[in-house]
């Protein structure tokens, strides 16, 4: 029988890949959209789009009615580190509203996309697992990104105690097709266009978004209710990764390495510059990315491999696929030279 699914956030990067995986399996898919969504890719897939306010429980329940599975892939990403409290409250409201609406619409299961940022890094040099506990309080206080992901996931799990089934997925950084907003892919696009002028070294884990999307579909059937699954690919040092990307792009590597303190100060200044004058362009380094890179470590996806059949492809293949997508879609044209300096 045809699965009836709704993807919340289906016009975004991961959402589009989840929809593609569902359609490959012959599912009937609908997708929510905001007024300002880029719908070019979703409309090409032929998926019906439903305009929905993700904080309006009744409207969202109406949109979900008749759907068996809901994929909640619309958890927000802090664009600027200012106004953190409001952004965290908004993320929590969206998560709770989604679960309540699904209950009201008698949806069987919600697959909730969280982040590996909600999993603590062990103090010993061992990979983090789903049982490692939450991130340490100092990190949650210092990083809006970590705080937002942790708060939204916690709220969704708590709300789902009254139903419906909820499975949480905790992906690492994703690269691949449909990253038109250029999230983690800034590591590729930034090197290709010369916009990534600075970086901070640390550990980063990357997976191909198509493998992560496939695991979402699998979680709808095979995931344990109330369970959490890390979806990780390969973990590498940022400096090594960026040089590898430059080599794959056949472009010189000119990034300047910053210390952690310098990187935080630089990212905060860059975000403030971009916020004050949007015409000056996007931040050359975002605070969320700095936090992720500084806190990154090895993670263990054994539970997802065993329970969901998650088999991430090699990182080199994922990077080449992502590079090809960006190239085909016009994202790799060189930009004007970056003008930000450490002295600003």
């Amino acid at each position: 029988m045809t699965l009836k699914a709704m993807v919340i956030g289906g016009t975004g990067f991961l959402g589009l890949n989840i929809m593609e995986a569902l359609l490959q399996d012959g599912a009937s898919v609908t997708c929510t959209r905001r007024r300002g969504s880029n719908t070019i890719f979703a409309r090409r897939m032929g998926v019906p789009l439903v305009e929905a306010d993700l904080t309006d429980e009744a409207a969202l329940a109406d949109a979900m009615r008749g759907r068996e599975m809901v994929f909640m892939a619309a958890t927000p990403y802090p664009r600027f580190s200012s106004g953190a409290r409001e952004q965290i409250e908004h993320a929590v409201r969206m998560a709770v509203t989604c679960v309540r609406a699904a209950r009201r619409a008698r949806v069987n299961r919600v697959v909730f996309t969280s982040s590996v940022a909600t999993v603590a890094q062990p103090e010993q040099d061992t990979p983090a697992t789903e049982d490692a506990g939450p991130p340490r309080p100092e990190l949650l206080a210092a990083s809006p990104y970590f705080a937002m992901k942790h708060a939204a996931e916690t709220a969704a799990l708590a709300e789902a105690r009254q139903g419906p089934d909820l499975v949480v997925l905790n992906p690492t950084g994703c690269v691949g097709p449909y990253d038109y907003r250029v999230g983690t892919g800034i590591l590729i696009v930034g090197i290709a266009t010369g916009r990534m002028s600075h970086y901070v070294d640390g550990w980063v884990d990357l997976a191909d978004v198509r493998d992560v999307a496939r695991a979402h579909v699998s979680a709808a059937f095979r995931g344990q209710a109330g369970g959490r699954y890390i979806l990780s690919g390969e973990t590498v040092r940022v400096g090594v990764l960026l040089r590898d990307i430059a080599r794959r792009l056949d472009t010189p590597f000119h990034c300047q390495e910053l210390s952690p303190a310098e990187a935080i100060a630089f990212a905060d200044r860059e975000e403030e510059r971009s916020r004050r004058d949007p015409r000056s362009g996007r931040a050359l380094l975002s605070r969320a990315l700095v936090d992720i890179l500084l806190e990154g470590g090895r993670v263990d996806s054994a539970r997802a491999r065993a329970g969901l059949g998650f088999h991430p492809r090699p990182l080199g293949e994922a990077l080449d696929n992502a590079i090809n997508w960006y190239r085909r879609n016009g994202f790799l044209r060189p930009a004007a030279p970056a003008t930000a300096t450490m002295a600003s």
Partner: peptide
């Protein structure tokens, strides 16, 4: 005009809905 890259995409997305056309993303980016 101060549009960032995402607003430029939103502009083309809304125009493509209005006119029922289907631009390629590389055309949008250019």
């Amino acid at each position: 005009l101060g549009l960032d890259s995402l607003q430029s995409m939103e502009l083309l997305s809304r125009l493509s809905e209005t006119y029922g056309v289907d631009p390629d993303m590389d055309e949008v980016m250019a």
